[in-house]
């Protein structure tokens, strides 16, 4: 655990010590602000709760893209730079490495979410929303962000470079997003299966409307743990393959 925290510390320093972290955060927040103004507020009168739901809907997309950019480099960059040797010749387990990397990116993503709080606070000041809705929405954003991070981290583990990791992660993410479209064109039992596997639609929308259901939390946690444990397994297998 100590070593995982050490990795978290170093990664956060790398995120905040280089331009890449700031660029990802600034772009995400800029686009989020623009979308909030153009679509969430819109030109038609709306209830505050509707504005907030729209905000979480757009934020979820931005969160996924930002998570993808943050996580695709986590392991692939170490492989490219040759620094992965440092971990593999230190008394550090593959699990400590993977969870440390994941945690660092998750903390960075959470910081971005905290900064974005000013937008719903504007709704809170000028309208009427419940804090429960706000909390549920941010819980949803954190879960979908963490799931995307885990997915991209897995791609970063299997890819030899950042670019390939990014392409793989995008393909996997898009596949998991369009599952709900596939669910609309196939018969049961695939309909239910695809619908359940879709990363966004059925699982995220309730959060954006202020509803928290355990089954959606369990879905996201399952995706996160599955991807992280698969990453651990890939790194262990690498010791055999060379």
């Amino acid at each position: 655990m100590t070593r995982s925290l050490l990795i978290v510390q170093r990664e956060l320093r790398a995120f905040f010590g280089t331009w890449s972290g700031y660029i990802i955060a600034a772009l995400a927040l800029l686009i989020e602000g623009l979308l909030f103004n153009a679509f969430a507020l819109g030109s038609q009168p709306k209830f505050s709760a509707e504005v907030l739901s729209s905000f979480f809907y757009f934020s979820s997309g931005i969160t996924m893209v930002a998570a993808l950019f943050l996580a695709m480099r986590l392991i692939a960059e170490e492989k490219q730079a040759g620094t992965i040797v440092l971990f593999f010749t230190s008394p550090l387990s593959e699990r400590e490495l993977v969870y440390g990397k994941f945690l660092s990116a998750f903390i960075f993503l959470t910081v971005m979410h905290i900064i974005s709080l000013y937008l719903p606070v504007l709704i809170l000041i000028n309208g009427k929303i419940s804090l429960g809705h706000l909390a549920a929405g941010y819980l949803g954003l954190s879960l979908i962000g963490a799931a995307t991070l885990a997915l991209a981290l897995f791609c970063s583990t299997i890819a030899s470079g950042q670019l390939i990791a990014g392409i793989l992660a995008t393909c996997l993410l898009v596949t998991m997003l369009i599952m709900w479209i596939l669910a609309g064109v196939v018969e049961e039992p695939f309909k239910a299966l695809f619908s359940y596997l879709a990363l966004h639609n059925d699982h995220f929308n309730p959060f954006s409307q202020g509803l928290v259901n355990t089954k959606h939390i369990i879905y996201y946690l399952s995706v996160i743990i599955f991807c992280l444990e698969s990453s651990v397994r890939v790194l262990k297998v690498r010791r055999w393959q060379g």
Binding site: R3, L6, G17, A81, G82, T83, V85, L86, F87
Partner: peptide, 20 residues
Amino acid sequence: PPLYHEMSVDAYLAYVLRLK
């Protein structure tokens, strides 16, 4: 050598020592 180019020599060695 497995080096992080953005780190100082001091910070890097402290990191490696803690890792070990």
